[in-house]
């Protein structure tokens, strides 16, 4: 039972990691590429880390929770680095794909 859950978590995690990288590779412009790694990769690695925490908690009969630390760290830092990279990209006026609605440079509001 435990092994099945572990195997599922590992496969799901690896799959999402791959999806993040596929997004990084095939999406057309930088701002869209930003979405793949920040979301999919973070969740994928998080799932693998949870699997690892479960594995080492049940295997030798002692609790191993320090994987939680890496998971929390990744979930806090991924949006921060994404924000900074987007800010840097806007600062050097990187081109976005043409069909994007609005541009960040002339700050015309939503609606």
């Amino acid at each position: 039972m435990l092994e099945t859950i572990l195997a599922l978590l590992i496969i799901i995690g690896a799959f999402f990691t791959l999806v993040g990288s596929i997004g990084l590779y095939k999406l057309p412009d930088f701002y869209m590429r930003l979405h793949g790694p920040t979301k999919a990769t973070t969740l994928g690695v998080g799932a693998i880390l949870v699997a690892s925490a479960l594995y080492f908690s049940f295997k030798p009969g002692e609790i191993s929770l320090h994987e939680i630390l890496v998971t929390v760290f990744l979930f806090i830092t991924a949006p921060v680095s994404a924000h900074l990279m987007a800010k840097a990209a806007i600062h050097i006026k990187l081109k976005q794909i043409e069909r994007t609605k609005n541009t960040p440079y002339q700050a015309d509001n939503n609606s």
């Binding site: 979405h35 976005q96 794909i97 994007t100």
Partner: peptide, 20 residues
């Protein structure tokens, strides 16, 4: 993540990105 995975793996031409 499931939504974004679908969007990434599907056709990218139909995506409508936007700033707001």
């Amino acid at each position: 993540n499931i939504t974004v995975a679908k969007l990434i793996l599907g056709k990218n031409d139909k995506l409508q990105p936007a700033f707001f």
